[in-house]
Simulated scan of single mutants.
Amino acid sequence: MSDILLVHGSCHGAWCYRDLIPALEALGHTARAIDMPSHGNDTTPVTDVTLDSCAKSIINALGEDTVVLGHSWGGFPITRAADLAPGRIARLIYLCAYAPWDNHSTIDMRIAAPRQPLMQAIKRHEDGQSYTFEPAKVRDALYHDCPPGTEDYALAHLSPQSIAAQQTKITLGDGHRQTPRSYIRCMNDQAIPPEFQVTMSEDWPSEDVYEMPTSHSPFFADPAGLAALIDHILKD
């Protein structure tokens, strides 16, 4: 069985994997999640967050043969981590995540998508350093197919997201290219358009691309189904 490290997306934290961790453990895996800098229980000021500091928090949490799953913007720091620590990650799994293009930032890729549905739910802070999600719009954007109570749980935990970290253009190296990788498309996603998820993974081997019929938050919408799919990926 596998050692699995779960990496969150924008404004989230380790807390979002509350239901997925026990589902993976029930299948025999070791699963844990981290808070990247300034999220969850991490007290780093949001103004100090960088793409590399996020990547290094992932590297610091690796075990001997760890599979790393990144959700949404988490695709950027997990890719960077694989480049900074070549050979340390057993497999990368992109969960409705940005699979970075060379010399692009997260914001560049968001703009490159054919539409930007998440923008209507984003509230930029007055200082221009971070953003959060509009409480009234978060369910439709992120949790529309999730169980009752999910939205309230999330709103109690969501935290500001560094803009600078998402403005940083990534330079891709050999580390992530030499790491096995899989992509899970979420086909009812109202944050990252499903058609853009197809674009980002269209040249990947077909056996490394999977789909779920969920929103942007399958770890809440269908944790058992997501765990079963991860288990299938790791047994292939």
Rank of each mutant, 00 (worst) to 15 (best):
M187Q: 12
Q129S: 04
G70V: 04
K123Y: 01
L27E: 09
T168H: 12
I184E: 10
I58P: 07
L51I: 04
A97L: 00
A113G: 13
D236Q: 14
T106L: 11
T30Q: 14
E151T: 15
P86D: 06
I233P: 11
Q167L: 14
L118I: 08
G149L: 12
D140G: 15
D203C: 10
P147I: 01
D189M: 05
Q166N: 04
L51Q: 10
A141Y: 01
A90G: 07
H216T: 07
N103K: 15
Q129P: 00
D152S: 15
T199S: 12
E151L: 14
A112H: 09
R139K: 15
A156P: 08
A164D: 09
A121Y: 13
Q161K: 06
Y183M: 09
T66W: 13
D65N: 15
I4C: 03
I230N: 02
S182A: 15
D102H: 15
Y17T: 01
V46R: 03
A191T: 14
N60S: 13
L226C: 03
Y17K: 01
S105L: 03
E25I: 11
A23D: 00
Y98T: 08
D48C: 09
M109G: 05
K169I: 12
A227Q: 00
A165I: 01
D108E: 11
T171Q: 15
H39N: 08
A90P: 06
G13H: 04
L62V: 07
H104G: 06
D102V: 14
P213W: 01
I59E: 05
P114K: 07
L62T: 07
I89C: 12
A85T: 09
P205A: 07
V198C: 08
H39L: 05
S182K: 07
G75W: 11
I170G: 06
P135R: 13
L24K: 09
C96A: 12
D208E: 11
M119R: 11
V209H: 03
K137M: 15
A112G: 05
G28P: 10
G40W: 01
K137I: 11
T168I: 03
Q161W: 04
I122R: 09
